[in-house]
Structure formats: C-alpha cells, structure tokens
C-alpha cells in the first residue's frame, strides 16, 4: 500500500541511462519541463480535491506518474500510482506527504518547491 516510501527518490540507473542517451542540454531542458509538470499536475490535483472531482484527481495522478517514472523519479511516480486508485479523502490525507515529496524531488534536481509547500489547506474547498 505504501510502496512509494521504500522506493528511491531517484533511480540512479535510469538517470545514468538518460545521461548516456541524451545530450546534456536535452537533459537540462527535460528536467526543467518536469519541474513545470510537477507544479501544474500538483495544481490540477489540488483543484480536483477541492472540487470533489475524482476523475480529475485520477487524471492528474496518472499524468504525473508517467512523467516521473520515465525519469526515474520512483517515489513520486509510485505515490501517484497509488493515488490513481485511492479515494479523494485518502489523497487529501496524504497531501502533506505528496507535497513534501514533490519538494524533495524538485530540490534533488536543484529546483524550487511547490509554492504551497506542505500546507494542506489548499485542498479544502
């Protein structure tokens, strides 16, 4: 149920493979885009929770899961995978952990965290 807590923040093998397969400027551009993806999908997820929109929450989680796992951001990808099948109340309860995970993932690649940090008030209508 909480498999993401045992997953690495960053899968080193995936990161090494990306560096081998792509030019350095391409990797930098992709990571910048991934930071934007985290922000936009976290916003989408928060909005869906506030609106009671279960389908919207699943779509946001699905989208961020794919992007995260493609780049070896395993812990973030796996919590999103869990959210795809969780109820809104459970996602809301896990929001502080999700927000902290987004921040940690961004910090690990030298980028700014979510503006709302771990404050779960954003998900309250």
């Amino acid at each position: 149920m909480t498999a993401w807590r045992h997953a690495p923040l960053l899968d080193d093998a995936v990161a090494a493979q990306l560096r081998a397969d792509l030019e350095a400027d391409e990797v930098a551009e992709i990571l910048a885009a991934f930071a934007a993806d985290i922000h936009s999908r976290a916003d989408d997820l928060a909005a869906a929770l506030a609106a009671g929109d279960a389908d919207g929450a699943r779509r946001a989680a699905h989208s961020l899961k794919g992007a995260a796992l493609n780049l070896g951001r395993s812990r973030l990808g796996l919590i999103c995978a869990y959210f795809q099948h969780a109820g809104l109340a459970e996602i809301a309860a896990l929001w502080p952990e999700f927000a902290a995970l987004c921040d940690a993932t961004l910090a690990a690649q030298g980028q700014t965290g979510l503006a709302f940090g771990e404050d779960s008030s954003i998900v309250r209508a």
């Binding site: 990306l18 397969d21 792509l22 030019e23 391409e26 551009e29 992709i30 990571l31 885009a33 991934f34 934007a36 993806d37 999908r41 989208s63 961020l64 794919g66 992007a67 493609n70 780049l71």
Partner: peptide, 16 residues
C-alpha cells in the same frame, strides 16, 4: 504526449 517532460524525452530519444 500531454506532459511536456515526456514529450521532450521521446523527441530527444528519437533524434538520437
């Protein structure tokens, strides 16, 4: 692809 990072990743790999 709707996520920009995945779109850029696929495009970069295809160019490679």
């Amino acid at each position: 692809e709707d996520t920009s990072s995945s779109r850029l990743l696929v495009a970069g790999l295809l160019r490679g």
